[in-house]
Design a protein around this nucleic acid. Sequence first.
RNA 1: GUGGACGUAGCUCAGCUGGUAGAGUCCCGGAUUGUGAUUCCGGCUGUCGCGGGUUCGAGUCCCGUCGUCCACCCCA
Length: 426
Amino acid sequence: MSQSNLAAVRGMNDVLPAAIGAWQHLERNARELFAAYGFEELRVPLVEQTTLFKRSIGEFTDIVEKEMFTFTEADGESLTLRPEATAGIARAAITNGLLRGARLKLWTSGPMFRHERPQHGRYRQFYQIDVEALGFAGPDIDIELIAMTARLWRLLGISRVQLKLNSLGTPESRRVYREKLVEYFTQHAAALDADSQRRLSGNPLRILDSKHPAMQAVIGGAPLLSAYLDAESREHFDALCATLTAMGIDYVVDPRLVRGLDYYSRTVFEWVTDALGSQNAICSGGRYDGLISQLGGEATPAIGFAMGVERVVELLQQTGQAFSRPSPDVYVLASGERAMRAGLALVERLRDELPAVVFEMNQGGGNFKAQFRRADRSGARLALILGENELERGAAALKPLRLDAAQAECTLAELPARIPAILDTL
RNA sequence: GUGGACGUAGCUCAGCUGGUAGAGUCCCGGAUUGUGAUUCCGGCUGUCGCGGGUUCGAGUCCCGUCGUCCACCCCA
């Protein structure tokens, strides 16, 4: 990097043309799949009032406590770059009057912002594809969302993934469990690391998915949330599991999967992979039955998930599939300025007459050697050569580039017929 | 936010215990003054991440800083 004073902001990356094919492949597959399942796209702002995220994600979560990009407007209003999409979508549904008992199947995508220490697969500006179903109590919609993501992995050829499931129950049953958990961990406080001791008062459930090796024994002995589930949540979760099994969708129940956002209730799930290092969650979500009423909308059960685009793109790249820019069919060479100008007009006419054929016109001059080299590298099957001599006679030359075949000459008027005919033989 | 490793041409990297930088590749030109592989010949690009210090002299040692990577943490 020769200009160190000119740098991208830490944790915010450029997606270069070499990678964009994989991004578009994922985006196209997701868009078509969601449409097939009856989901509609919406787009919401990147910026919301800070209070929206505090109220929805939770005051005592890591995201709100230390990871938000927040700034103050001239009038004193506090605004925040969205750290996730669900809050904004819930807000949009309420403020646009979309609810009224309606059932909404929505998706969106775009950048999210969290002020974390960057790591492979974890960035300060990162992209999510986000799906939300509002007005559905489940568990049928839970199953459909999970089946849809499983189908997406199949479409993309991604196989190193595993589905983890849990139920967090209702807020009431979780409160009971939380008390038991605090009681247990308080008795074993000496065995907790500093992070976990801090969480004991704020967010004790988060202690459960600590990776600290020395704490695995204490965590293993902790009471399980599943023992405190209320009857309805139990029934909901059992139905979910039974149907997934019947559908042949593999999963593991992870009783210690708790998720980091306060608004989750009942079903939570997470697709993880062992191919990306420690940032191993590629898609996760859950029910948030209480969120919309908590924000002031009419009580609406809901479920959603978010997919980490950079992470899924990397899995896609690991499959070895090629997503390069498609090669043109015909690369057009021209010698000299007159031929170049005539060529530009000619190629526009050919594009009109042969809309299915992709032409790439040589740009930037160069002798024939250089132009043929570019033609070769473009991957085109056929070169259309516009030379001064041929143009004098109203003719042009066509040369196959991918196999050993003779170069042929024809009149300009014959080109619209000859080009597709030759391409068919290549 | 905590701990650790790393940072030399566009890319991949070499540079021993300090003596002001090199290879391959890429790109461009020529051999072939109008024809893409290969080969051969020639050419271009570096504030050695940045700033400061030690030294006669720093890519090399020290400090700071920025960035990347790994683990924790967090999570998509």
